[in-house]
Design a protein around this nucleic acid. Sequence first.
DNA 1: AATCATTGTCATGTC
DNA 2: GTGACATGACAATGA
Length: 652
Amino acid sequence: MQIAKKYFTEGLIQFTILLSLIGVRVDVDSYLNGYFTPLLEINLGPSSAYIQTPFHSLRDTLDGYSVHPKCPELDYFFASRRLLDEVRTLGSPRFPTHLNAWLVHQVSAVDKTESGQPSNSDSIDTSSGLESPGDDASDDGQHLPDSGQEECQTAQRHGGQGPCTSGACGFLKDEDDAIAKEEEPVSFGQLAHSSTLEQESLLNGGIALSDPVPHHPPIDIEQHWSSFLSLSVTDLDDLDSLVPERLLDLDSDITSAISHDVSLRDAMVTRAGASESMQARPGQAIAQQQPPFFRLESTNSSYSDSSPGMTPSLAALPFASVCNVTRNVSSHGTLSGCLDEAVFDQINLLGLEGLDTIDVQLLDGVGSIDPQVLEDLDSDSGLSLESGSGGPASPGTSEVSSSSSSYCEDECGATGYSSEADSFPSKGIADYTTTWTPVDLSESVWHDHSYSSPAFFHQPSVATLPHKGIKEEPVSDEEEQRFEERELSRDELRARAMCIPFSALQIVNMPVEEFLEVLEGHGFSPEQVTLLRDIRRRGKNKLAAQNCRKRKLDAITGLQEEVARLQAQRDRLLREKQLTAKTMCAVGQQIEQLTRDVLARLRDDSGQPLSPDRFTLQCGANGRVVVQPVRRPTVSTTAGSKTDKRKKDKKQ
DNA sequence: AATCATTGTCATGTC
DNA sequence: GTGACATGACAATGA
């Protein structure tokens, strides 16, 4: 077993290193460094590495319906988690994690047993808080008909004896002089503790009433254990080669799955990219001239953005760039053409040095753009003019500034609105209506700065982003986007008609403090303030309604699943009931037969065999079996009441 | 034209 | 008191 432990540990380390090399944070190492916590997390919920918010943690911990989601991104999150689990499954040995943990930590106990049967009390004692074999048995016990059977088997394993060693059937041990009389109750008690399968075998293959030792099939955990033991004996010598081979074979799958894993953040990018590619606009040509801005913008949109339920994290930007680089190198070669290291440098600078720095850099990059194009953009954007920056602002600049001012509460202040407001009066409403582009609501809610410069989202290279392959829902996204564009445009148009230099999503998603500052600091008229508040209220309520409906659907789905489960349970219990009734009938017949046999061997005072018609065997509460004459009911009008009284006596 | 699903919006309550 | 959120109800819209 030391060899098995060694190879297993090394395999996990290799897998961890490989995943780390391709840019994915994995907590497999925690399985080796901290044995207990990750294993408990497997049972109780996800690792903290994958919990984006406490809300997600709660939702995952309770696994569904008791905690209401507040974020539509949960779909992406849980999809990512599921795919991550698949990655784990791909990279982990094919035996239960519980057994895995037990294997790693209970080598000594296994060595003691040498029988591949960890389900004993010793193992439980040595497990000391780990997933005990008993728990494994409990898990496997799910396949058992009911909990009573599980308890019975557990008692058997722990006690090493059959169910008749204790409990209701134990009192029969006292009767040494009436073995034949004892067999019936013993078997009956055994039947009471037998599983459905045993009852079936009892009925089909004859009633083994005289056998006090039940023959329970081995539990699954033992099978797993035996399988792994055989693996460890025969195959562990090749584990060094097996692990890398398996990883290589699964490279593509793992990579895609890892991409899904990363897509916990990248899902935002994907969606942004999808919507970007769909919102083709004349500004596309402009965007094509500066791929670095796209990369920066895309990455920024994915990592600096934050949903209201998520903590904004600019610190994730360097990691984001690393992920992009690694994925680009590893599996998404198509992206290599449109990636530039300078982009990632800018991303890193964005994350490390703050947005002011990146603004300057982006402005430098804007210098290479056709001034006429910039002028067009200026007139088209309607929101993102950075007049305060001392020049025509690029959409990327406005993107960053608006994003930072609106949603990066920690590192960025509300720096973008004043300049935007100053530049706004120069714009006409006609420009807004003709060039302003409504944005995907769901995207912008969580990537809330992406709509301030929509023209820069339509670069064709965006479609080649690796995230594109991660989430392929072009039809649904397009429809959803189209619908949301149409719906959102009303408030947006109202805002623009009222010369409000903010998009609806900006208004909706900016913190309340910032919103109040905007209301107070821009000299809005009462009508504008009312409209701003209405837009904010409606936008938030719209999201709330979406979440509410989603929760309602989830609740309905959960209830439907619960109904199906309960129906299945009811059917199973009914089958067990019928089977039990058959068993009882068979046992009753057997008892009658044995009673006749016993009575036939007994003699009365005259030396005649006892007639079963006149005598019967009764088992008392103390376990004694006595011969009693049969009390036949007299035929009278009170027969019914006497029968009832006799029934009552029997019950007593 | 009727029906249904989806979505936005309002009103109201709760925290 | 205010803002955020949840939710029922209603209306608009498209399939």
